[in-house]
Design a protein around this nucleic acid. Structure first.
Lengths: 337, 337
DNA sequence: CCTTCAAGGGAAAACGTTTTCAGGAATTTA
DNA sequence: TAAATTCCTGAAAACGTTTTCCCTTGAAGG
């Protein structure tokens, strides 16, 4: 691989001159500029980002740490962040911790050694332990999942509001026997969705036993199906389900079909996330959409501004609005259905 | 951020000694080793991967270039590759080109400047133009999507075989009026699935007009729904659909429900990919599973071996077997249904 | 007692850039 | 004409490591 020295030799100039034309700063005559660009093309010269980063003391790289690329939401988020940052001249290192705190800590360590200029993190657990080492070393943006007592900027979707929206919707349709099904009990977002649901119950003034919550440690894919199968077979089964995730909702749909319920007439289902598939399900899924695009962009932009301008204490949180997507899976409750 | 010099000063030794204890090579007395490790902890010293890479002339980083992280298949593939390589001491830079050749070329350029030690690539288009610059500079493994006339190692799933399996299955069930629906006409994998389907037709000795192929430029999400809606309304509608992708199959399911067809009795559907969701659809989707885990691992391992051992000409391809997943969406054809 | 060898450690070169500094030439200003 | 300014260029330091080379010391072997 050609180095700047070889280019300089080939063009009979100093390395300083080559550097000037590469970075297009400082004075250099047309004559030499031409000779240098020619030599660069001839030798297929590509400056080493390693050497440049070392000298400039900035890597133009930022770390993105998500709990699981297999979750469509995070895949989409990572893609948006990548697109935004790449356009700004930054590259990203995406790390998928697969919900493991140990892996998360290992990736954090790696990002530090890699001298990334900043990090955008959707943390795995409820504990901030794994990511604290980063905070003193670079700007960090927390995204999607909150952690208490951390002095960082946050980009969050209003999960409380979303939970509220979903439950309000079901209550307004007349449902009074509702099951809430969730997984991942260690996530603050899930907690807030549940809180929102209870808030809607309280605001509507309906009986507290209108809502039953079922939370499992199992994976998203299993839990909806497993819970719903039992639940829907009971004599007094719920008339509506609030699934804390679209993937869970899909499991519920599956179970309902197996049990022989006619959807949506005999069971209304509302999901959460608005993954691409949800509008293609049968029936198409009413769900709460996260402002995923704005989250990704906002995180990227906020991080860049922090890298350029330094600490903007106090650390402010950006709380973005959710949106209820009305589709076919929810209908008014009919007495006797 | 602490440097090796500061650690050396703090422990009253030379930087060479610190380096020796960090890398655990060369001779160093217990006395000094202790003083150094103490100083390292005290200063929270983390060696700069930048400086190390520059000096060692290897970055321990490899580039992974996929056409779209939003496609569950590639998200899963990237995750597997990352896990395998991270365990081997390598980090990866994941780039998602979003099926754009221009972005792909930009990422390729970036990977070269970043001095990655190798690359695993699932190319975007049919042309090898965008990625050729890499070939002369580092070991490259092509994965999932083939490109002709490239002197590289390949890890491919046998898409031809998969297409064959799917079509054989439908034919064996007695279907003789089958629609093949696809998107992404620029992908070699899709071509091969189609070829496989025709091979099954030929082998079974049934009439060539048993199969109609419909390929669109539109996105995966739209195409299944759009085509199927038209198709299923005709007087002589197909009794089975082979969807070139699970996501397309989901669109078909949706359209069938809308048109009022009873699934799977009035329409059999077979998909391709076996994305996590496919077993949770209603009816659960018969589909062709890619050996995705073996693909990712094989690619990672082969790349590492090429980095260590250099060119193993001739370039061999690894062609992995597909597997037909029998589920509920396909049933025997009944005359008069 | 002399030679060899192993253990231990420091000085300095090297990796490929960017950037500061210094200086020369050409041009403008006083 | 002298002084100041602008344009242009190269030498060399610096970024943070690793590694080579060399030197010392102590012990073992003859």
């Amino acid at each position: 691989m050609a180095t700047i020295k070889e280019v300089a030799a080939h063009a009979s100039v100093s390395v300083a001159t080559v550097s000037r034309v590469v970075n297009n700063n400082g004075y250099v005559s047309e004559d030499l500029r031409l000779r240098v660009t020619e030599a660069m093309h001839l030798l297929d010269y590509k400056p080493s980002a390693l050497a440049r980063s070392l000298r400039r003391q900035e890597s133009l790289t930022i770390g993105v740490l998500v709990p699981g690329l297999n979750q469509p939401f995070f895949a989409a988020l990572a893609t948006i962040i990548q697109t935004t940052l790449f356009a700004a001249g930054y590259r990203i290192i995406i790390c998928s911790s697969e919900e493991s705190s140990d892996d998360e800590a290992a990736y954090v360590d790696m990002l530090i050694r890699q001298r990334v200029d900043g990090a955008i993190i959707a943390p795995t657990g409820r504990s901030s332990e794994a990511i604290t080492p980063l905070l003193s070393k670079m700007p960090v943006i927390l995204i999607d999942r909150d952690l208490p007592d951390l002095r960082v900027n946050r980009i969050l979707a209003n999960n409380f509001q979303g939970g509220c929206y979903a439950m309000e919707h079901l209550l307004r349709l007349g449902h009074r026997h509702i099951a809430l099904i969730g997984a991942q009990p260690h996530s603050a977002s899930m907690d807030q969705r549940i809180q929102g649901a209870w808030k809607a119950i309280a605001d509507a003034g309906v009986a507290e036993n209108s809502l039953k919550t079922l939370i499992s440690e199992r994976s998203e894919f299993d839990v909806g199906y497993a819970f719903a199968r039992d639940l829907l077979r009971r004599k007094r089964r719920p008339t509506a389900v609030f699934a804390l995730t679209d993937v869970i909702a899909i499991g519920v749909l599956h179970a309902a079909a197996e049990v022989g319920l006619k959807l949506p007439d005999e069971l209304s289902v509302v999901g959460f996330d608005d993954i691409p598939l949800s509008s293609y399900l049968i029936p198409s899924l009413t769900t709460v959409a996260q402002p995923i695009h704005r989250m990704g962009e906002a995180a990227a932009e906020l991080l860049l501004s922090r890298i350029k301008n330094g600490h903007p204490e106090p650390f402010e949180s950006l709380l973005l609005d959710m949106k209820l997507m009305l589709r076919a899976s929810t209908v008014p409750h009919r007495r006797g259905a």
